[in-house]
Structures are given as structure tokens and as C-alpha cells.
Amino acid sequence: MRPALAYLARRATGLAAVVGVSSALLGALLLFAPGSPVAEQGLAAWLGGFWRGVFAGDLGPSYRGIPVLDLVGRGAATTLPIVGFALLLSLTGALGIVLGLGDRVAALSRPLRLGLHGLSLVPVFLLGYVALVVFGVPPDGPRRWWAAVFILAVGDGTLSDVILGLDAERRRLVEQDFVHSMRLRGLPLVRRLAPHLALPLAQLLAARLVFLLSGVLVLEMVLGIQGLGLMGYRAAVKADFTLLVAIAVGLTGLVAAVQLGVDALRVAVDPRVRKDSRQTARGSV
């Protein structure tokens, strides 16, 4: 167990460093914006103040008067569930299609495939617009929320990428000899192969997250959802740099946390990481 924890600790430190360095780089960038707190205080001072504020739970007021961290919290509470559910929806849809159709995914009738990928190609912004204008999605309420989740799950090529990625992994997997061995012995394939698929799938979704965060930004603005995206955009326009940095760093932190989650999954599932692989059994047999 210990090598596993050591591995995770190493990864966590690395990811924390990435977040820290990102905030420093962002601060460095803001040096060029006169009027920003960084330009006034200098990079080191501002950076120290920023992180102290984060851990103390207080980053000061935003341009709207409400404390920055409060705003970020509210925005996150709106945006994160949408992104999470969108990933889940995309995953479920892709799993259904790939596992249900198996080898036939590639041979799927052209119009259906073009249709699905075509819809997936459409930029999220446009899908949101269509929802608003054509389907008359109301400016509030659950219908709008579900529209956002569905659009994020499908648009910007998300659904298509997840399906193709999953299909490629499945095909790679079923060519492995150990899968052939399982087949000959009549073992339950789906159950046995689930851990093998879970990892690349998690990796795929984690990679997709970065794109989804771009998409949710636009979607919020199109549909008028008061989330992190809209908030960040307004902060940029109003030049409230503290709020902007808080949101940007928060997003980086989110991506890092998700990556750590994938690493934790790897540790749980793949014994090659769990055990110290230098411990090869001796014996010349």
C-alpha cells in the first residue's frame, strides 16, 4: 500500500506546484495591466497576499461589493454540477453506443453516424442559441438547466470524441491475448474488462473537461446562466482582476484535482502502480 500512497503524494505535490506556478504566471501577466493589484503591489507581494487570502477564506470585495470568494463559491455551485452532469451524460451515451453496438459502431449506418457526429460538431454556442431562439427555452428553471447539460454533453465534438475514444480503446482491448483467453474460457467479459476500460475512459473525460470549461463559459453567456463563466467574463470586462484571477486559478485547481482523481483511480485499479514493481519474484524456472 505504501508505494501507492507515495505515488499519489508525489502526484499531488506536482499538481499543486502546477496550480501555484500558474497563479504566479498569471500574476506576472497582470504586471502589464496598469491599475491591477499586481502592478501596484509587485508580483511577490501580491502572490503572497493572494494565497494567504485563499487559505484564510477572504480575498476582499469584488467590483460588485460582494466578497470575491463568495461570488466564486456561488458561481462554482452553479457551473460545476452542469459540467459534471454533462460529462456523465456524455459517458453514459457513449458507453451505451459502444458497448451496445460493439464491432458495429464502425459500420453504423452512415446517415445516423453523420447525424450524431454532425450534431456533436456544432459549437456549443450555436446549440445554445438554437435552444434559445428556436425552441424557446425559457430564461430560467430546470428546462434551461437540462438544455445546458445536454448541449455540453453533445456539442463541440464532445460526444463524438468520447464515442470514438471509447471505441478505439475497446478495439485495442479486445485484440489482447488475455481477452482471447477469457473468451475461450467463457468468462464474463464486461465485468472483467471494466477496470481495463475505466482508466482510459477517466483519462478521456479528464482531457475533455478542459474543453467543457471553455464551452460552459460561452453557454452560460448565451443562456444567461449566472455561473462561473459569465462571472469571469464580466470580471474581465470590468477589469476586476482579483475576481478574474480567483476564477482562473480556481479552474486550474479543478483540472488538477480531476487529474489527481484519475491518478487515484489508476492506483486503485492497476497493480503495477500499487506494488513496487522492482519486487520481481526470484527464481529461474
Binding site: D177, F178, H180, S181, L184, P195, H196, D270
Partner: peptide, 17 residues
């Protein structure tokens, strides 16, 4: 299970997990 197969590469033939 009526037919058993021993593959060339045991590293590939065994489930690594």
C-alpha cells in the same frame, strides 16, 4: 473450457490487473 490455449507471450496472455 473445452479448448485451452497457451499463448506465445505470457505477458500478454495474463490479465495484468
Amino acid at each position: 473450457g473445452d479448448a485451452g490455449y497457451v499463448f506465445q507471450d505470457p505477458g500478454q496472455a495474463l490479465d495484468p490487473f
